[in-house]
Nucleic acid binder design. Structure first.
Lengths: 196, 196
DNA sequence: CAAAAATAAGTGAATGTTTATTCACTTAAA
DNA sequence: TTTAAGTGAATAAACATTCACTTATTTTTG
């Protein structure tokens, strides 16, 4: 029995991400992908059931990779400020190291594939974070706010900064590069907001 | 001379937004739009030069509408907390009143049409906000932080809450409905973060 | 241990469908 | 009568997917 060419599989995967980023889900087609990856269109249908399957599985894989990085070195039982700092570090690192991945993921977030991708990924993660937050409130480290308020204050600013960074520009098209200093400065403000 | 049927023009415009929201930019096609709006495909090419033109102009129009609402009752010379509160109220109102519009805009934000749409819209707005922020720092109402940090803390949490609301669910698929109470609670935290 | 058989990987060309866009034409209003 | 709005059918290109086929690799057999 002949076995699958790992290099081709990887080529298809990587080129799919590039194509989605560069042309949008709109301009992404199976024939373009086949050409870009240097395989026959028919080969794609050996790896994936169909176009939907390809996109969905790609999104799930990238999402998992992202969440795994996020919780690297994180522990639910950490002091609040420390746990948040670890997550900021991790998320920032992943985003800065994997711009293609993140940009691709953003496309999928705003597409009809969203539901299928997220229902698979998010479950465990949300539970762990829920525990972390409730514990912080009990310990008087975190103002008692609804989970959604917490999440919006705690992470939306970070995501926004990274968005600017990946775009290379911020408000009013001003050029922007994300530095550790800016990151820490913002995290300090966030911690100030969340302290009881 | 026969003149354009305003009702048809509006039908096309509204159905375009609906189609983009429901099927993504991916599933959006001129023939589907024509059928949904009850006109001939050829009619679309009377109103718009081509598909790109349609999408771009739609995005610009919706973006302008959004920004105009945002600065309703806002004045650069307002005290900081008040100015920010006005903008939060306005943005929240627009987003809650125009969910289709906002969802459509989110699709366009993450598409290759982004650049064309934003370069047209954002200029004046960014300048006015720059002034508002610098003045607030001078007056000791706002911690002296870079514009991007300010913007990320000041608005990203709001946008995130609205995103949850429009999705109908938040972290971990928890059902979510945005109330005034949650909005004010979050704004209070934001103001706390930004106070010197 | 090699030759043959078996099996799944991989292919280029083809299929039928959907796409954006155009065109020759009709219709309504000025 | 003139003019632009509006049309349904047509066109060529691009699309997702399939198919008959070849190729590489493993397993079985003599």
């Amino acid at each position: 029995m002949r076995c699958r060419d790992e290099i081709k599989i990887q080529q298809v995967y990587q080129k799919a991400i590039e194509l989605i980023v560069n042309e949008g889900l709109n301009g992404f087609s199976m024939q373009k992908l086949a050409k870009a990856a240097g395989v026959s269109p028919a080969t794609l249908y050996i790896y994936y059931k169909d176009k939907d399957d390809l996109i969905t599985r790609l999104g799930i894989a990238e999402g998992k990779r992202m969440l795994e990085t996020t919780v690297d070195g994180f522990d639910q039982e950490m002091p609040f400020a420390e746990g948040l700092r670890v997550q900021w570090r991790n998320r920032a690192r992943f985003w800065l190291d994997n711009p293609m991945s993140v940009k691709c993921f953003e496309h999928l977030r705003h597409s009809p594939y969203r539901d299928k991708i997220f229902e698979t990924i998010q479950q465990d993660f949300a539970e762990a974070m829920g525990h972390f937050v409730r514990k912080a409130v009990r310990n008087g480290e975190l103002a008692p706010v609804p989970l959604e308020v917490y999440w919006s204050i705690a992470f939306a600013p970070l995501m926004n900064l990274v968005k600017y960074h990946l775009d290379g520009r911020s408000v009013g098209n001003k050029p922007f590069y994300l530095t550790d200093e800016i990151l820490n400065q913002t995290l300090d403000l966030v911690l100030k907001a969340l302290r009881p």
